[in-house]
Nucleic acid binder design. Structure first.
Lengths: 328, 328
DNA sequence: AGCCTGTGCACCGTGAAAGCG
DNA sequence: CCGCTTTCACGGTGCACAGGC
């Protein structure tokens, strides 16, 4: 089962390798008739270019490495699909990798990197930086001067906070995530300001609890928190589900006895009972911006590219019990 | 920012390219001292082999293409991690792609394919078959003679059925998935036999409903189904969550007024309230078998490799209300 | 001459076989 | 046989150039 090469096509067409190359690549220097003939033979032979040889000869590659470790949070199937589409439209091929293997990403196989995941460690950051390859971060990085497409955490958490403010439940608990996360930092910073504005004189830190974005941690804290609070601003959907569970076990009904808002608008949010009100981000827009940034990084390097912010959308479901509004 | 090549190392070490090649590849024909020197220089220069050139020269590649379209079902983050680990141990590098791009998979860049997803279309199947590349299916294929690592659907659905049989709720509804799915076929076939055995004279088909593995479909049917049944054998967790929602909206409590079992043991199952009893599969074992099959496919081709079955595990949570057992 | 069509060949980075003291 | 070098092949690219009208 031999692989078809340009040589086979050249022999069949009775021309040289160079002519075949020109014809297949759409370059000038071949007559329309000859190009047609060559393309037809290529089709007939089911010719597929040898990617490695192309990369070697062209000294560039269309393959983009997507670093994605977890699919359970905001990086959903939808975003994954959108990313593939958008990169493909731009002439790239996106593949996903789980781990930062230097032998892979340092090997000139990839045109660049899209970091589609949370919380790159310093060590991983160092590996990426050492590559000097076009890199786009979709999740926040400690290197602020890099190409980034961030969610607008400030706007998003303001939306969530505002939604809970309309609730009958006013004993607010803020369930935050991992301290090292940029997203967490931005959200926390914003919500602290909002809380301090609305509750002058009270200590914000007394209502902030960190569960590391983890279900298990949030669940462990849930019984205690539910005894003291009735309104929960969760920094991701997973932790919100843990509060659901704690409430369920106490016989409390979400959306009646307490209010919750989530973050990410993941599959958990709409499949929960009752549905979890959650802020999310438009995957299509995100993907488009990512490709846009990537192109810029390819042209000018990853440094000093202004970050793009993705606007959040509020997905209202039934997890918040609103005040009765006296409008007639 | 020039890429370091073997030539640079050769010049630095004062030897030929071939010597560098031998030293780096651990081949004989180099003195221990020279090898040491070369390795040290490579380290110092942070040399990373040019993967494309390696593939071209070696006429083989360590990269394996994982075809994965959705991460929401049984193919979880856990399995993705396990796969990476196991393939890496075996000397391969796994990357994930969510679309069957002929220009990628036909390009000799990949050593083979691992189909990690559900329901390959006939067209996609034809593309894969035409490649004659080592291929392992983790999800069931209509080509039965191919290397496969399947979940033991028969045993799994028997476990789920048996668990529901212990429930106080005996008006059983079987919520099945997509008709074209092999997994669905196997599960349905098995459960029909079990049901017919236990309910002689009744028509199995009157309790089987297909919701295509989809949340929306299952939700649309839920109100009707809940009026007629109180025990739900769901062929995936997503549909089970839709029944949760329908029950919630009717004021019914899962695990008290009705019983449900899921399938996949996904994040939905343990984060649901109450926890969803669900059969799952050990990701580690699955990954190990996949690599084992892949190696066999590399050696002997993908045809006529006996399929491996992965045993299910039953994860009991609180979604089933059991009969009181009079044991003292 | 000037334009068009097609060819020869050096090159990419690596690996393997053959050669040589 | 050891230790190293020379040479070629891998598949494709694209420049420089040749030949025809």
């Amino acid at each position: 089962m031999k692989h078809i090469t340009m040589k086979d096509i050249a022999k069949e067409a009775g021309v040289s390798l160079a002519t075949v190359s020109y014809a297949l690549n759409g370059n000038t220097g071949v007559s329309a008739a000859m190009r047609q003939k060559i393309l037809q033979i290529a089709e007939e032979f089911q010719y597929v270019p040898h990617m490695s040889a192309q990369i070697l000869a062209r000294k560039t590659t269309p393959i983009v490495c997507g670093l994605v470790r977890s699919f359970s949070g905001v990086f959903s199937n939808e975003l994954w699909d959108e990313m593939q589409d958008e990169f493909q439209k731009a002439g790239y091929l996106l593949v996903a990798v789980n781990r930062l293997l230097p032998e892979l990403i340092g090997s000139d196989l990839f045109r660049g990197i899209v970091v589609l995941d949370f919380d790159i460690t310093d060590q991983e950051q160092a590996i990426i930086d050492a590559l000097h390859a076009p890199t786009v971060y979709l999740v926040g990085t400690h290197s602020p001067a890099k190409a980034q497409v961030m969610m607008d955490n400030q706007q998003a958490i303001t939306l969530a906070y505002g939604e809970l403010a309309k609730s009958v439940h006013q004993r607010l608990c803020i369930l935050s995530g991992r301290e090292t996360s940029i997203n967490n930092y931005e959200r926390l910073n914003t919500v602290k300001k909002l809380y301090s504005r609305d509750h002058p004189g009270t200590d914000v830190d007394s209502v902030v609890f960190s569960a590391d974005f983890s279900y298990a941690n949030a669940y462990d804290m849930s019984a205690d928190l539910l005894a003291r609070f009735d309104s929960f601003l969760c920094f991701n959907d997973v932790m919100a589900m843990a509060i659901y569970k704690g409430a369920f076990e106490k016989g409390l009904v979400v959306g009646r006895d307490l209010s919750i808002s989530g973050f990410d608008n993941s599959i958990l949010a709409f499949s929960a009972s009752p549905g979890l009100t959650s802020v999310g981000f438009d995957g299509h827009q995100w993907a488009q911006e990512a490709v846009h940034q990537f192109k810029a990084a390819v042209r000018h390097g990853s440094d000093n590219i202004p970050a793009t912010l993705i606007s959040p959308t509020m997905n209202v479901r039934e997890s918040i019990r609103y005040k009765e509004i006296s409008e007639n």
